[in-house]
């Protein structure tokens, strides 16, 4: 049972904007760390069942670094959905564009997402795409195994284990604790840049009304963004060992770390 897997990934901003302008140049962006477990799971499933892995992202040209990272880890190809008409998309417009792109791409069995992104943290795109594509969706997937004609999907939530059974195709977001993502090997990086293909999809290939895309199609808009200053406080505790232990215990208890 060879699996055709598509992993939707995002190139996230890792540096705070300067003068309200987001810097998406190399060195200021990175593959969303929450997408890495989804890629890792895909690579393991491919090793187990065979098939292929496609990494899909939407963003400016620089977002292809996320695809290269995904391919370095083991994805077979990358697809970049890139067009000035898509700039300013919120999660809804992004989900619409991604689902239109997915319909253009080959059929798939599994559609994987990270649970959220480290820069905007909405966790909305995965479920929205699934909804737009009329696919079953399991969030926070912990493990997956074959079960008859379909798959058994385990999800951890608030101290409970939820078990789902789903026929393919199915969409899911992968919990960060599900698998430990691998480091890219040098041969993985070399293959990613020198051998594996990246395909470009433009907005006019999506067959969507331009009014639903980009800023025009986005009911929400980010009005501003600034970094939260982290205040570190260093406090020295003086006194005898017994005093220090007692004071330390009090401080730790007050912070709620222990009760």
């Amino acid at each position: 049972m060879a699996l055709q897997i598509i992993v939707c990934v995002k190139s996230v901003v890792v540096k705070p904007p300067k003068r309200n302008k987001v810097d998406r140049s190399a060195g200021s962006i990175d593959l969303n760390p929450f997408d890495k477990p989804a890629i890792e799971l895909a690579v393991r499933l491919k090793a187990q069942f065979g098939g292929s892995i496609t990494a899909l992202t939407m963003g400016p040209k620089s977002a292809e670094t996320a695809l290269y990272d995904a391919m370095s880890m083991g994805a077979d190809r990358g697809i970049l959905l890139c067009d000035p008409a898509l700039a300013g998309s919120d999660t809804l417009a992004t989900s619409l564009a991604l689902s239109a792109a997915l319909k253009k791409i080959n059929d798939f069995d599994l559609l994987l997402f990270g649970v959220r992104t480290s820069d905007s943290d909405t966790g909305q795109v995965g479920p929205q795409v699934a909804e737009l594509m009329q696919l079953p969706f399991v969030s926070g997937l912990e493990s997956i195994e074959p079960d008859g004609q379909g798959f058994k999907l385990i999800r951890l939530i608030d101290g409970f284990v939820e078990e789902f059974k789903a026929m393919l195709p199915v969409a899911m977001s992968v919990h960060p604790s599900a698998v430990v993502p691998r480091d890219s090997s040098l041969s993985g990086i070399e293959e990613s840049f020198e051998v594996k293909p990246i395909e470009l999809i433009k907005a006019d290939e999506l067959g969507l009304d331009p009014g639903v895309l980009g800023e025009a199609g986005s009911p929400t808009r980010v009005a501003g963004m600034k970094k939260i200053p982290k205040e570190k406080k260093c406090e020295f505790i003086d006194g005898s060992d017994t005093d220090i232990a007692a004071k330390l215990l009090k401080v730790i208890t007050e912070t709620g770390v222990i009760s």
Binding site: A26, G27, E64, T65, Y68, D69, S72, D183, S184, L186, I189, E190, S192, F193, E194
Partner: peptide
């Protein structure tokens, strides 16, 4: 960022090895 004049592959190499180390 160190390799301002180099292609993406060399950024990826540096980042990957740096993260590991």
């Amino acid at each position: 960022m160190i390799d301002k004049l180099l292609d993406g592959k060399y950024h990826a190499i540096r980042k990957s090895v740096r993260d590991f180390c």
